[in-house]
Every structure is written in structure tokens, then in C-alpha cells.
Design a protein around this nucleic acid. Structure first.
Lengths: 194, 194
DNA sequence: CCTACCGATCGGTAGG
DNA sequence: CCTACCGATCGGTAGG
């Protein structure tokens, strides 16, 4: 049997937890609240998961893995620097739009991870941002980009995407496609030579 | 006697609370932790403050007021649209760099406000972003700016600044001035016609 | 998957 | 500003 997993109760618990961690934050979400949204008693949760912390770990490292897998894909594709950066921005916008709960929890609640997971996450994140910086650096050196500081451009790009939180909270008069294209253009135009 | 207030014990409590709310989040910060960092017993805090919630309110609405006051100042100054936007970006970068605890708590912990403060904050924030959108809209109409969607440009600008959180956590090899200029340029170049 | 329950900790109060 | 303490709620376990 290939990777075709069916959604287990554990998956349901994690999905509901992701939504609640996003809405109320990790510390403010109680296992009793979570149990109620799943439709069982709090004690019964522990037949499917080990602890509250384990749920947070699963949410965060699943999302982090998706980011890393996509990054590898971009690196292995033959594209000019500006296209690589565009592909990475679009990916993060997609995560924020389509995988909102999980991605938001990773970005906003990671500091509630316990050791050794906290250190692992911080290390992974540092590696990720350094790889992105290296791509920007390459573009600056080859003069495809304006002479920006790669570190600052990386911060600007990665944090911009967090603003899409407010689109989710809004009445959504703007389409996801418009949102994506406008944000990508703003950030890319800010890097390109003209 | 003019506005020259001396730093009271209440100010000290709020300052320490702001730092702890930023580090650990509002729900994960206990009044006992806070009392210890101030150097008194938990019960003694209540001679200076009414409740944990009140502290959060003070931190957030102080910062929000600063943002509104600065915005009024920018609106009343005769400057081209692009300079107004630049002044607003620089202000938010300064808040993130120099008033890190308070500003971070406002941006990241506002959803822990209780009613009616929560509604008040959300309303104030909506007004603020709509005023910023209106400035961008004006620039698009007058063709000073590229034909961006003001809503998306506003989200991109305001959320970019949040990335400076990672500069605070870093070894700070980049100076605040370089950080500010690079972020401003990235965001402004993305709006300007060339 | 439930009932019943544990020790720990929470925000906050009484009284001095 | 402290000691002593309150009821509520927390994450989690025992036992079936």
C-alpha cells in the first residue's frame, strides 16, 4: 500500500488544534477546549497523542518540512535569480492563503516549542533564511538585482507574507490571485533594476 | 508642573510586563513571574495595578496612540505622497527598533485584549490602515505610484516591519541605520515608477 | 473512550 | 508591601 493514508483521529485532533492554536495561541488553548471541538472528553485525547507539546511539534515540523522540500525544488530548477525569488515568495503566499492554520502556527507559536525541538527549529529556520540570503546575494553579485543587503531583503520578503493574516480576518473583497500578484510585484519590483 | 512625570512603580511594572509579554506571550506570563522581576510579591502588584488585563491595555493603547499621533503629524505636513509613505515606514521601523517591547506586544498580543478594549483596538486599527490606504490610493491616482492595489501595498508595508524581530534576536551585525534604509528602499522602490 | 481524580499553578483577595 | 489563602483551571494519569 503506497502513501495513501486515511485521515485518522489523530489527524483530526491535530487539525482542530492547529485552528485553535492560531485563534487563541498555544498557551491559551486548553486540552478541554480541544477535546470539546473534537467531540470527546479531555482524557480521551491521550489515547491518540502523547501531550499538548507533541501536537505543537507535529504542526510546526510538518509545515517546516514543506518549506524545505519546496526550497530544494526551487534550487534544483534552472531559473534566473529573480524567478527563484519570485517562486519562493509565491510559495509563502500560498502557504499563508491555503495552509493558514499550520503556517500561521509555525510562524507565530514556534517559541512555545520545548527543548530539544526549539533548538532544532531555530537551527532549521536559520539554515532556511541563509539559503534565501545566498540566492539574493548571488543576484546582487551578478547585477541582476539592485545592490541591496541580502539579510534585510530576506527579512522584508518573509515577514511581508504575515500581513495576509488580515486578509483572512477581512471580508475578502480581494481575490487570492490579486493578493498574490500584487504582493509579489511589490517585493520583486523593489529588488529589480529598471 | 508640566508633563514631566517621574517613573512610578506602576511604570516599572508595565515596563517589565511589556518585556515579558513579548518574550513569552501574554497568557504564558504569570503575575508571579512578573512580581519576581519587579522584586516584590505577587499580591503587592495589585497595589499599583487593577488586573493583568489592565497592564496589557496600557501597553497597547499607549503604542497605538503614538502611531496615531505620528500619522496626524505626517498628514499635516506638506509632502509628496512618496515622502509621506516613506515617513510612515521609517516611523514603524523606529518603533520596532527603539520601542521593541511595547510595539511588538501591540502587534502580536492585541487579540488577548478583553471587550470592550478588543473592539476599540480593532476599530482604531482599521481606521489607521484605511488612512494609509487612502494615501497610497492618492499616489496611484496622481500617477506618482505604479498602479498597485492600496490594500495589498498597505499590508506589505505594515507587516514587513515585523521581520525586524529577528534582527533583535540576532547578533546585530547590521546597524539600525542600514536596516532602516534598506527596508525603506525595498518597499519604496516597489511602489515608485521608474 | 469514559469517570474520577491528581498535584500544580493560575489571577486575585482579605487583612494587617 | 507581606502572609495566608481562595476557587478555578490547568495538563495529565489510573483504572476500567
Amino acid at each position: 500500500m503506497p502513501n495513501r493514508r486515511k485521515a485518522s483521529k489523530k489527524d483530526l485532533i491535530i487539525q482542530k488544534a492547529s485552528s485553535m492554536f492560531r485563534e487563541k495561541g498555544f498557551p491559551a488553548t486548553s486540552m478541554r477546549d480541544l477535546a470539546e471541538s473534537v467531540g470527546i472528553e479531555a482524557a480521551s485525547l491521550y489515547n491518540h497523542i502523547q501531550s499538548k507539546s507533541e501536537i505543537l511539534q507535529e504542526i510546526i515540523f510538518r509545515s517546516a518540512n514543506e518549506c524545505n522540500v519546496h526550497f530544494d525544488h526551487v534550487v534544483s530548477s534552472p531559473m534566473p535569480v529573480i524567478r527563484r525569488i519570485e517562486a519562493l515568495i509565491r510559495f509563502h503566499v500560498h502557504m499563508m492563503l491555503n495552509r493558514f492554520d499550520d503556517y500561521y502556527v509555525m510562524v507565530n507559536e514556534w517559541h512555545h516549542l520545548e527543548e530539544p525541538y526549539l533548538t532544532t527549529f531555530i537551527t532549521q529556520r536559520r539554515t532556511y533564511v541563509q539559503r534565501l540570503e545566498a540566492i539574493i546575494q548571488e543576484g546582487v553579485r551578478s547585477k541582476e538585482l539592485r545592490p541591496v543587503m541580502p539579510y534585510v531583503a530576506m527579512l522584508t520578503i518573509l515577514s511581508s507574507v504575515r500581513g495576509l493574516e488580515f486578509w483572512h480576518r477581512s471580508n475578502k473583497r480581494i481575490s487570492p490571485a490579486e493578493l498574490e500578484d500584487n504582493m509579489v510585484n511589490h517585493l520583486i519590483y523593489g529588488l529589480k533594476k529598471n
